[in-house]
């Protein structure tokens, strides 16, 4: 539901102060507190549940099966589902396409290989239970935590099956942790001259533009996108906004990554 004109102008004026005064008093670099729980789905190899203060919620499950990668070259399948949005809505399809493309680029598929013929195939299912603001940050945090806590069965048969035809066999209960680096995605709102990280729903409504920047392997990287956080206040932004966002990322993303890892 939209805000009234007076609310919008009040909020806009607060956000464009120096330093910006946000709806909940956060600093421009401060994220909403999140709660993370991992390994709560007994049937999945890895799972995570991320709750943002304010009620946004997301579940990620990672499942795996063994495939012959000479036949099936696609080793990663990502599916995004957002409650309250149709599967073919622009939000869901573009989010799904963005994330699956990104994961294919970043997850090293060689690490999924078991033998010269067989590989693990990962199924990453994302379910956004509730979301008011642009959910991509939350989704990437959840995927990150899930992949950091994914356990795969330990291979006990030989890993060279080129000459001898052999099906991989696994240890009965020993598991190996998946060694995968997932990217983190950060959303920024540009409001007037302020650049704000992790905008809330109200902040999204008055923002002039949005930025999506990826953090992977200790640096800001592509995909970098401008994203519309609303439809009626969109304006252009200048180069220094983009540079400011990248600066913020370089400064605080390591903190975020550390916090997510240490929460396990």
């Amino acid at each position: 539901m939209g805000l009234s004109i007076t609310e919008k102008s009040f909020l806009f004026d607060s956000l464009t102060l120096d330093p910006p005064l946000r709806t909940d008093g956060r600093g421009s670099h401060q994220f909403r507190p999140i709660e993370v729980s991992t390994d709560f789905l007994p049937n999945s190899n890895g799972s995570s549940h991320v709750i943002l203060s304010g009620g946004s919620e997301c579940i990620v499950s990672v499942k795996t099966k063994v495939v012959d990668h000479t036949v099936e070259s696609e080793l990663l399948v990502t599916d995004v589902d957002i409650q309250g949005h149709r599967d073919d809505s622009p939000l869901v399809t573009s989010m799904s396409s963005l994330i699956s493309k990104l994961l294919k680029q970043t997850i090293d598929q060689k690490k999924l290989m078991l033998t010269k013929r067989y590989s693990f195939k990962l199924y990453i299912d994302v379910l956004v239970l509730a979301s008011k603001s642009y959910p991509v940050s939350m989704i990437s945090f959840a995927i990150f935590s899930a992949l950091k806590n994914t356990w795969l069965p330990k291979l006990i048969s030989s890993d060279d099956d080129l000459e001898v035809e052999e099906l991989p066999t696994f240890h009965d209960y020993d598991m190996v942790k998946l060694d995968a680096d997932a990217p983190l995605l950060f959303t920024f709102a540009i409001v007037g001259d302020s650049v704000l990280v992790d905008p809330s729903f109200e902040e999204s409504l008055v923002s002039n533009n949005g930025l999506l920047i990826t953090w992977y392997k200790d640096r800001a990287t592509s995909p970098i996108r401008s994203v519309g956080l609303n439809n009626d206040n969109v304006k252009g932004f200048s180069q220094h906004h983009l540079e400011e966002a990248i600066k913020l990322i370089h400064k605080y993303a390591p903190d975020v990554e550390r916090a997510l890892v240490s929460s396990d």
Partner: peptide
């Protein structure tokens, strides 16, 4: 390369950026 930037106002204002270039080092 793998990036598109849309401008207005003689390049003073950016209205859209789409970058898939994984070698981005210097955004400026």
């Amino acid at each position: 390369d793998n990036s598109v930037v849309a401008f207005i106002r003689n390049g003073h204002e950016i209205v859209g950026i789409w970058s898939d270039d994984d070698k981005v080092s210097d955004i400026s």
